[in-house]
Every structure is written in structure tokens, then in C-alpha cells.
Amino acid sequence: MTTNLTKPISKKLLFAMLIVTIGAEILLYLTRYSYMAGTLYDAMMVSSFFIGWKLHPRLKNSVDYPKTKRQLTLQFTGAFLIFFLGSTIINMYSTYIFQDFSTNYDQYVQDYTDMQMAAGEDDGTEAGHITKPIWSFFEKVDTIGYDLYTDTLAGLEEVWRLAYMILLLVIFKKVFPRRWESGRRDIFLMCALFLTSILFGIDHTLDSEQPWSIRIGAIVTFANMGLLFGLILLWTRNLWVTVLVHALYDITATLSWYYIDYAVELFALAVLVVHLILLTLEKLSHRRLKNQLKAVELAQAAE
């Protein structure tokens, strides 16, 4: 995989990768001072889709067979369940170890929830009996729509990770040519994964000023989450599956915090049911194919 990831990069693609990595870091930091920086950051995440389209094929090996729709769906369901279980353990660990961060984050969620509830209340106007339900509905749609939009863009952070990993691997290839040529390249891939996970954790603290007791907890928690996403990326060798897992987890987490109780758990349960059904069908399909091949071999032997 490392050979494919470090294939020659055109100047245009290299420039785009630097923009979506270092440029995104700068804009993310500036969001604490400027709303325009936040808008530009969102625009950069949208544009990263096209960069991901160019980088995605580098995850594949030439000998890889194309997967069926069922196999791709199984990849997604398996990856989501792995992240759900892993993130649950990470959250439990952070709650116990980093109590200041956990308390601060819970307060942030509660404050945002209270703000959403307050925004949905009507001031009381003429014909309020008619307008209140209508305006309340549209306000709720507007609020949820924005949250879902930002959570969807968060999934495209995996393009940021892949671009960073490729850039780091190219640097390792230039700095350590002998070890690279010796064939022991997995260590470089793991180093790139670890470094991008640390950066992922740091990036979740750039947009606001926080005490170090809270910031360290945030960095460790989100770095562990980032490591989990990175492992899923390397396991599936599919950028878009990882993007989808990231986006849907963020979306269901937001729904769970502010709108629908236990949305993450309910969605994970539904994914588990689908995964078991598809896994059973896949095993039956393999068994049927195996029996067919065996019948062909017996027929050939009889001739």
C-alpha cells in the first residue's frame, strides 16, 4: 500500500493537498476570531471531496478484486460497529481519566441543548395559535439541517487524514531512503497514522481557548478517535467507507445529544441487524459457490 500511496504526485495535486491540510489547520485556528474563517473552512471541506476522488485509488492494490455491493455494505456495517464499540470504550476511559474535560464537554452539550430549546419557543404574536406550530417546525428544520450539514462535512476530514499520511510518507521516503528501500515500510505507515491521529486531536482544540486540563483531555480523546478512524481506513482501504462512518457517527451523536435520545445506540443496533443478515447471505453465497466448484471438479474427474 505504501508504494501506491507514494506514487508520483503532480504539482497541482500537491498544492491541493497542502491547502486541505496546512490551510485547513490555519483556518480552523482562525475560526475562534472570524466567522468568515469558519465559512472558508466549510468550503475547503466541500472541495476536499474532489481531492479525495483523486487520492482514493492510491489505497488500492493492483491485485485487489472489485467488491460487490453486498461486500461494500458489509465493510461499512463492520467498520461502523467497530468504531461504535471503540468510541464507547474511549468515552468511558476519558470520563474516568479526564474528568475536567468530561465535565466541560457535558456542560457544552447541555448549554447547546438549552439554546436550541430556547430558540424553538415563540414570543407570542398575533394569530399565535396558527403561526407558532408552523414557525416552530421551520426553526427546528433549520437548526437540525445546519447540524447535519456540519456533521456531514466532518466526514470529509478523512480526506485531510489521507492527504497528510501521503505527505508524511513522501517525507519519510526522502529522509530515510535506505530503510525505505529495504522493504520495511509498515513502520512508516504506522508513524504517519500515529502523527495524523495526534494532529486530529489537536485540531479539535484549535477553534477555542481552553484551560490545559481540558485541552489535554480533548487532545487525547479525539486522538484516540482519530486513530480508530485511521485503522478503519487502512483496514477497508476505502476512503469513502471511512468518510461515511465518520459522518454518520457524528450525525447520530448530534441527534442523540440534542434531538433524539439514544440515536447512536439505536442506529448501531439497526446496523448490527443489517450486518448479521448480510453476513449470513454472504456465507450462504460462498457455500453455494464452493459446492458448484466441487460439482464441476467431480464432473471433470468422472469424464
Rank of each mutant, 00 (worst) to 15 (best):
V159L: 00
A127S: 13
Q292A: 06
V241F: 00
S94W: 03
P211S: 10
D147F: 05
G52Y: 00
I260M: 07
L234N: 04
R161N: 07
Q210V: 13
E297C: 00
L199W: 12
T280V: 10
A218R: 00
G155P: 04
Q71H: 05
E297S: 00
D203K: 10
L18T: 05
F172Q: 02
D261H: 12
V170D: 12
R70W: 08
V264M: 11
Y164E: 01
T236I: 05
I166Q: 02
S136K: 08
T39N: 11
T125R: 09
E25L: 12
Y65K: 15
K12Q: 08
K294H: 01
Q75M: 02
I219Q: 03
R179H: 14
L278S: 05
M44S: 03
E158Y: 00
V175I: 08
N91I: 01
L281A: 10
D122K: 11
H275K: 12
H56V: 10
Q116M: 14
T31E: 15
K132W: 10
V271M: 10
V245R: 01
G120F: 09
T252L: 05
L81N: 07
H129W: 13
T21A: 12
V243S: 00
L30I: 14
I130F: 15
Q116P: 10
G38Y: 05
E265D: 13
F49K: 03
E126G: 14
L278V: 07
L227T: 03
K60V: 14
I144F: 02
F194Q: 12
L193I: 09
Y259N: 11
R288T: 10
R179Y: 15
E25C: 14
H246I: 04
I89P: 09
M92H: 15
W180R: 07
G217W: 00
I82K: 04
T6Q: 10
N4K: 09
T2V: 14
L248F: 08
L168F: 10
G201Y: 04
A154C: 08
K290S: 13
S285N: 14
Y29R: 13
K174T: 15
L284H: 14
W180F: 11
Q99N: 05
Y164A: 04
R287L: 09
S208G: 11
T205N: 10
F222D: 00
L40A: 01
Y41R: 04
L199N: 12
L234H: 04
S213C: 01
V264A: 08
E181S: 14
